[in-house]
């Protein structure tokens, strides 16, 4: 087909793209994914029974701020990587800021605790399930983000998939906080971070395969 004919054919199928429609669809995918994850939590895991008192505790808000901050920063990075303009990945270093902040809190808490109790602080009661559950809970959100990314034009499919996985992990972990009774920063900085990082790795592997265009 010659190029002029191609252009005519393309122009015949042009439909309006409203301003901001990319960000609107991103919001749609985020809301859709988190609703599915929320439904999974409500059906499979009990909301922590002490939730009414827990929302007055430092630990609850510490977890929430950490995971939601990762979710927000990684979602923004994903939105940037979805646009095909030259980009330096180093520009996304602030994604690591929440991790640094929580590590500081963990060190402060450890310094106030006898060394003998550090092991219990680190493993909590649920370390065996925590990371895997966060990964599973992030999958519906990851799928929704990929639905969105595949309509856009990420020129770095692997990096785009990785931040999508990290963002999905952040949002999934935020919802998991409704169930999870753990309270120490050392626990969260280890097992929550591991769960979110697994989401990022899954996203990178999937992105490399399915975000090409």
């Amino acid at each position: 087909m010659n190029t002029d004919a191609l252009i005519d054919a393309l122009a015949r199928t042009v439909t309006p793209v409203p301003a901001r429609s990319a960000s609107r669809r991103l919001m749609l995918s985020l809301i859709g994914g988190t609703l599915i994850t929320l439904a999974l939590i409500l059906s499979a895991l009990p909301i922590r029974p002490d939730i009414a008192s827990a929302i007055h505790s430092f630990a609850f808000w510490m977890k929430l701020s950490y995971t939601a901050a990762v979710g927000v920063l990684a979602t923004r990075a994903m939105a940037r990587l979805a646009r095909p303009e030259p980009v330096r990945l180093i520009a996304f270093w602030p994604v690591l800021l929440p991790l640094g902040a929580l590590a500081v809190i963990a060190i402060v808490q450890m310094s106030q605790t006898p060394t003998a109790d550090w092991g219990a602080m680190w493993l909590g009661h649920t370390y065996r399930q925590c990371s895997a559950r966060i990964l599973l809970l992030s999958l519906p959100i990851l799928a929704a983000f990929f639905w969105w990314l595949r309509q856009l034009a990420p020129t770095r499919p692997r990096a785009g998939g990785a931040v999508a996985g990290l963002a999905a992990g952040g949002w999934g972990a935020t919802l998991y906080g409704l169930h999870c009774p753990e309270v120490t920063a050392l626990f969260v900085v280890t097992w929550y971070s591991l769960g979110m990082a697994l989401g990022g790795i899954a996203g990178a592997l999937l992105g490399h395969r399915s975000l090409r265009w």
């Binding site: 252009i7 393309l10 301003a19 429609s21 309509q151 856009l152 034009a153």
Partner: peptide, 17 residues
Amino acid sequence: VQETLIAVHTRRISYDR
């Protein structure tokens, strides 16, 4: 050129006005 024109067309949602 043709592939790029098709991408410009199908992925125009990724252009920020």
